[in-house]
Write a protein that binds this DNA or RNA. Sequence first.
DNA 1: CTAACACCTACAGTAGCTGTAGGTTCAAGG
DNA 2: CCTTGAACCTACAGCTACTGTAGGTGTTAG
Lengths: 151, 151
Amino acid sequence: MATRLTIGRAAEAAGCKVQTIRYYEQIGLLHRPPRSEGNQRLFAHEDIRRLAFIRHARALGFPLQAIRDLLSLGDEPDQPCEAVDAIARAQLGDVEQRITYLQALRSELKRMVEQCRGGRIADCRVIEVLSDHTRREMFDHAVPRSGVGSP
Amino acid sequence: MATRLTIGRAAEAAGCKVQTIRYYEQIGLLHRPPRSEGNQRLFAHEDIRRLAFIRHARALGFPLQAIRDLLSLGDEPDQPCEAVDAIARAQLGDVEQRITYLQALRSELKRMVEQCRGGRIADCRVIEVLSDHTRREMFDHAVPRSGVGSP
DNA sequence: CTAACACCTACAGTAGCTGTAGGTTCAAGG
DNA sequence: CCTTGAACCTACAGCTACTGTAGGTGTTAG
């Protein structure tokens, strides 16, 4: 059966916007599908599978370049899957790094908001914490240049 | 003392690139500093404080609009700090959401890479998991349009 | 037949920088 | 005094991964 979907239904099937599909086609992630007599794209089942693959990988945070690599690896089923594995592990490592980073942010933010006792802005710990990172020594050793500044 | 820093030293002090400072000035986060006779920017201590504030807030993940709001709130020290607090709490909430989301990604990615036993790509669980999300029912109910497709 | 909607291309905009081209200015060494 | 090279200047393009808009054409239901 060669039933085909218009771009709107393809987008619905993949859970993305119509423009996103056109974008993927434009950057070469999706093949250019055949068109109807009226020049409208008609997607076959295989195209939708590919699109769904992309969307699922995106949902897992894979960048488009990684997805590009995965797709071309997927076209060589007899090759060993080390490269595939490496991409997935890199993504896992990236996610883990980001979690660690965000957890550090979370604790600093928590400390900050918990110290705020709801007074005036002048006394606000949030502003204070954010402000308190100037390096004065840069000024102490600064050499005045020309024109403007102390005489 | 009206010692002033050129943009390179200011960038060094704030731990950012020269272009970033010019960008902040361009979008109105930093005031336009006075210039030397040769048209070079000269930053006062107060400018560097403001820049350091921005960089610290950015390091905590605050978006520039939030920083813009925090900066203008900081200019009204006698106001209650509720609004400041709300921005910080919103950022905390955002970070927490992202952590939750990334933790879900992490477990799905982990499951995926752990299932891979290092065979051929054709049998690779990574590719399989990413592929296996097509909604066939879209095709079952699809109505053929014009021109291309089954006769 | 017509109204409403889906589709088409092409391009601009989003966040938050970063890099480049092509040209001054400045500080220091000879 | 002159030159060299680093640091500065403006203006603009590019990055990721879309998303939105304008202005036009195709398709379909009533």
